[in-house]
Design a protein around this nucleic acid. Structure first.
Length: 565
RNA sequence: GCGCCUAUAGCUCAAUUGGAUAGAGCAUCGGACUUCGGAUCCGAGGGUUGAGGGUUCAACUCCCCCUAGGCGCGCCA
């Protein structure tokens, strides 16, 4: 709570029969500037006082006295509106940002709390598609957000490196694969094999059996199977790391599915002893009918393990290793039911922390033309998307800023930033329409727009050519545009918290668009560097603050902030 | 068949989680000071918030019922 809201609470407290906390929670920021800076809605008082809220608002307003931070108090309809002293407000906010710099918005709410995050999790032997990008960038942004709030965060890349699919790939490789081809272009070769398998299995159902046998061999530690698997895995990791490097994303642990094999027997034993399991149609299951869910399969009739089995082990291992306060699974919403089952099973196993598991689900990435399904073989490769975006950025730079020195590097940052921003911009529960025209449009509500604004701010700072000071004449920063900008700056820490609460980086995206657009409007209307020394100094402090917050916000999203572009 | 999610301007999305006159971008049309970056800014048109009912001071938001689309529902992950 800032000290302006604090003062409003103080002013209201004597006149209203509500606790300070309640009053604070009710205070809101009006939707439009002309209503004021803060407002208190009087609706809830009307029952108690038996009067219409409008009347209460107007009566109370006349009784309340402005103080030093709050200059005006007046009613509009059922609201009591407050206007802050703009000079004091500007000083309060800008000093704070000046001092804290990129640490503005740091918080201690997560102190000594660990949050474990499972995201990205690409499948070995399959290309890194655009579908995995969403999990990857949401996870990365949430990691930054929680770190900012003081949490200890652990990034886990739960590689899809185990399962029947490897039976398929091995079987296919044994039938049609060649070492030479594999070593020259590993992922594409493996992927082709995978696709071919699915094509041929339609006419030859016995292949399915063959694949199952290979997976069983793998689980039993057969050396040939294991050797192939390891080879495939290493090749795949090389490719993934190339992508992670482009995105500048890293992980604390790459413990994939295969890692948890060692715990499977013990875990299943425990479940059996607790009486949770039963045999049904030759498979081992946990019956969840009581909870309105289909059963959770633990072991197949051929004794091979399943995804759920390994995930149960993983959750237990993670708790024992990290003692997490929360564990997030950043996985598409197609798996919603699955995670409900998983969490329920863990709850039935009497782990109290089962309540702290969260499925952070997100919508599909849909394509206008081609639907992507790794089984059928249509897929948009993330690397292609990134490269295409970088190329376009380079083209635009050559047109607009031919003298820029390190064009390639900047084009890289802008191109990647555009893709990340576009992926994060839509609220995560919604599907995204993947549309090349949109992704490659760098105008309007896009990453490059925010980056451009940042570059413009940096350019001003360069032009100014002297250090920005924090002792300025704050009263000169009280025009409508300046005040709105400063209010938006002050909102940054709150946005980070909301974003964490909702596990959604999209809130930071729209915040940055709002901030950048407010600044651009101000920039267009007012000249910043002028003959007037006092005004220039004050405005440069504002410029510096906006630049700092944009940079900080972009970095939370995992996007670079070039100083020129 | 059952369950979950989604539906807001021509298109893509917002809306402080039940609050003040539902806002942006793209696209379209019309504009912007011979100095700070035009990837910018200003203006215009464009809406029965899928349809219908209900709850209350107040509904895009909550409840019910339809309609359309997506996803999921036993040996994939």
């Amino acid at each position: 709570m800032n000290k302006f809201v604090e003062e409003i609470v103080k002013i209201l407290k004597d006149k209203i029969s509500l606790s300070s906390e309640k009053i604070e929670a009710l205070i809101e920021v009006p939707p439009e500037e002309k209503f004021g800076d803060y407002a208190f809605p009087c609706h809830i008082l009307s029952k108690e006082l038996k009067k219409p809220p409008q009347e209460i608002a107007s009566k109370l307003s006349s009784e309340l006295k402005p103080k030093e931070l709050i200059e005006q108090i007046y009613p509009i309809g059922p609201y009591i509106n407050f206007k802050v002293n703009r000079e004091k407000f500007a000083e309060y906010v800008l000093q704070d940002i000046y001092e804290k710099n990129l640490d503005y918005g740091l918080d201690t709410q997560g102190k000594r709390k660990t949050i474990v995050m499972d995201y990205s999790h690409p499948n070995i032997a399959k290309p890194f598609g655009i579908g995995h990008l969403r999990s990857t960038v949401i996870g990365n942004a949430l990691y930054n957000i929680f770190r900012k709030l003081g949490y200890e965060a652990i990034r886990i890349n739960h590689l899809g490196d185990w399962g029947t699919q490897f039976g398929k790939v091995i079987a296919a490789y044994k039938m049609w694969g060649e070492e030479k081809e594999l070593s020259s272009d590993p992922i594409a070769t493996l992927y082709d094999l995978y696709v071919r398998f699915h094509r041929e299995v339609e006419g030859r159902p016995e292949l399915e059996e063959e694949a199952r046998r290979w997976f069983k061999k793998l689980e039993d530690g057969d050396s040939e199977a294991l050797g192939l698997w390891e080879k495939f895995k290493n090749y795949s990791l090389e490719e993934f790391n190339r992508i992670y490097k482009m995105l500048d994303i890293s992980f604390d642990s790459y413990a994939g599915e295969s890692f948890y094999n060692q715990f499977i027997e013990k875990t299943i034993d425990k479940m059996n002893k607790m009486g949770l399991t039963e045999i049904s149609q030759d498979a081992l299951i946990v019956n969840l009918e009581k909870y309105g869910m289909p059963p959770c399969l633990i072991r197949k009739k051929d004794e091979a393990s399943l995804y759920a089995t390994r995930d149960i082990c993983a959750a237990i291992y993670r708790y024992e290793t990290y003692h997490f306060h929360k564990a997030l699974y950043i996985v598409g919403s197609a798996q919603k039911l699955y995670f409900q089952q998983l969490f329920k099973v863990l709850e039935l196993m009497c782990y109290p922390w089962a309540n702290n598991l969260v499925h952070v689900d997100f919508g599909w990435v849909k394509f206008k033309q081609v639907m992507m399904s790794t089984r059928k073989g249509n897929i948009v490769l993330l690397e292609d998307v990134l490269n295409k975006s970088i190329d376009l950025a380079l083209k635009i730079i050559k047109e607009k800023n031919p003298d820029l020195e390190n064009k390639e590097k900047v084009a890289f940052d802008v191109g990647i930033g555009a893709v990340i921003f576009a992926n994060l911009f839509t609220r995560r529960n919604k599907d995204i329409d993947f549309d090349w025209d949109k992704v490659l449009n760098f105008e309007g509500e896009t990453g490059p727009y925010v980056q451009y604004t940042h570059a413009r701010l940096c350019s001003l700072i360069r032009k100014y050519g002297q250090p920005v000071e924090n002792q300025v004449y704050f009263k000169s920063l009280s025009t409508e545009e300046e005040h709105r900008l400063i209010k938006r700056l002050e909102d940054f820490p709150r946005r980070i918290k909301s974003s964490a609460r909702e596990y959604d980086p999209a809130l930071i995206c729209s915040y940055l668009i709002e901030l950048a657009s407010l600044f651009n409007r101000f920039y267009q209307k007012e000249r910043i560097i002028t003959e007037n020394v006092e005004s220039t100094k004050a405005r440069m402090l504002l410029v510096k603050a906006v630049q700092t917050i944009i940079k900080s916000g972009l970095s939370i999203l995992g996007i670079k902030s070039p100083e020129k572009m």
